[in-house]
């Protein structure tokens, strides 16, 4: 656990000194909203469409993040340095997932207000924000877990920019399905409606299964 904190602190320090990923992901998501506006030719969206745009934008921003998550470690010897230390190797995977989670939260602080201003039709109240935070938190867990695993898988391949998104995208389809379905009543035109629990349940199950799986498998991606 102490190792995880050490690694997490290093990641956040790196991002604070040379902000790279968070601004890029935030900028990318705002630009994506603009693109959606013109592609769909809509000023105001709500319901299904709003949920879809929000989730897909978050997904693409995450893909951007997954591709860069391990680059500093790969290119500057961080993997070897870590492997030389007498610590539990799974800590790296846990720290990377937490890092991505933290980055996603920061990105959402920009992305969600931008969405509300640029595209979202209905008014925003506390109830909506509360439900949105709940769903986004569960989505972030799934994205972070898959991101930490697939990122580590892709970084050792020759075509890492291709392999990462190619593997991550289908793996994350269930997250998109459940999150979009859970959010569409929340973002409804007549104010936030009731969420259907079954989508959150499956999303939670997804987070749990892949969380455990990634935890069990991560070590194999480090050994040489």
């Amino acid at each position: 656990m102490r190792t995880v904190l050490t690694l997490l602190r290093k990641e956040l320090l790196l991002e604070r000194k040379v902000p790279q990923l968070v601004p890029a992901m935030a900028l990318f998501s705002v630009t994506t909203f603009v693109v959606f506006h013109f592609a769909l030719q809509q000023r105001d969206v709500d319901g299904d469409l709003a949920a879809g745009i929000l989730v897909v934008t978050l997904l693409f921003a995450t893909i951007l993040g997954i591709n860069r998550l391990y680059v500093a470690d790969r290119e500057e010897g961080g993997f070897d340095a870590f492997l030389l230390a007498p610590v539990d190797r799974t800590a790296l995977g846990v720290a990377k997932a937490l890092t991505l989670f933290a980055f996603l939260v920061l990105v959402e602080f920009v992305m969600v207000p931008a969405f509300a201003i640029l595209l979202f039709g209905p008014g925003v109240g506390w109830e909506l924000v509360g439900k949105l935070v709940l769903v986004l938190a569960m989505v972030n867990v799934g994205l972070s877990v898959i991101g930490a695993l697939v990122g580590a898988l892709a970084i050792q391949t020759r075509a890492r920019d291709l392999i990462g998104p190619l593997v991550a995208l289908p793996l994350l389809v269930p997250v998109v399905i459940t999150a979009a379905r859970a959010l569409s009543p929340v973002l409804g035109a007549d104010g936030p409606g009731a969420m259907e629990g079954q989508f959150l349940a499956v999303l939670g199950l997804y987070d749990l299964v892949f969380g455990l799986l990634a935890y069990a498998l991560f070590d194999f991606l480090l050994e040489d």
């Binding site: 399905i177 799986l213 194999f220």
Partner: peptide, 21 residues
Amino acid sequence: SVFAVTAGAFVPLNFLAVRLA
């Protein structure tokens, strides 16, 4: 193998999510 294990677990979970949708 890491991929194959992950994807193997993905098969039933994915079915569940799509069927529900």
